[in-house]
Amino acid sequence: MKVAPIKASRSRFSASWMRSGRIDYLWQTFAVLSVAGLSWLYFSMYGQLPPDRNRVLVLAFGCAGTILAVLAASLSVRKRLAYQGVGKLSAWLNAHIYIGIVSAFAILYHSGFRMGSPVPAILLSFYWFTIVSGVMGLWLSRKVPPLLTAIEENPAIIEDLLSVRAECLRGMLELAAGGSAKFSALVKDSLLPQTASWKRMGRFYRNRTTFAEEISAFQKEQEWALGWLAAPEHRAYQRAGEYALRVNKMNAELLLHRVMRGWLTIHITTTAAMFGFAALHIFSVLYY
């Protein structure tokens, strides 16, 4: 029996995600035309006009850039305050990116490729930080998920990762506490540093090895330590090693999670600072 999908809900599945749709092309066209228009205005008109007209043009670039930046920032309102807001958040993000790019050109032409006095200089620095961090974030949002998928055994949320990591560490320390003095010393000096080893984390990223592959390599590396221990402690040491490696792998995952959160923190912070200085800049232009 062919079953009708739940009527009122939208049922869809696209085997290849991130495909450009019609709306994307519209935004891309908007961005290309706007940037072309702004560039034409700047390169063919600016400097050819009388000074007062030039000033109007520069101001117009500034106004356009500011309005577009405010529009871009409205993504935050949709994202945090309007969960049932008009349009999917992905559509808003799309708009955000293209509007942000056009605004960058408007501001670039407004500044005339100069930094100027301290307030505009700081404002522009924050502005460019915002743009660069946005582009970075976009790049990361394409690059990090496949990497995470490759190294995760099962997708986990940051809170789960933290608690499982803590459990693993606890397991390792309990084994150390229950063993001989030599055993404890070895765990502390040799395994504990492995939990936060950047080199090892880098291997997960580079080689995209599975945990099972890494663990056998790791145990080979640690064979020397077994010579120091009595035979009954060998298995316990290997288990402690598994814990250490697991913590390391989770640190690798956590780092990616935090990179994904971190760039957005930077993007939002620089946006807030940029708007603060923009207000100051506008105020100073109007009143002085």
Binding site: S11, R12, F13, K88, S141
Partner: peptide, 29 residues
């Protein structure tokens, strides 16, 4: 029926689908 999860994913990474649509999409790639 405006699924909050789907509506609020910034990266279009999440979808609600029935088994038929899902298998059909994979079959036709």
């Amino acid at each position: 029926y405006n699924h909050g999860c789907v509506h609020n994913c910034p990266y279009s990474a999440i979808e609600r689908t029935d088994a038929e649509t899902f298998l059909d999409a994979l079959r036709s790639g």
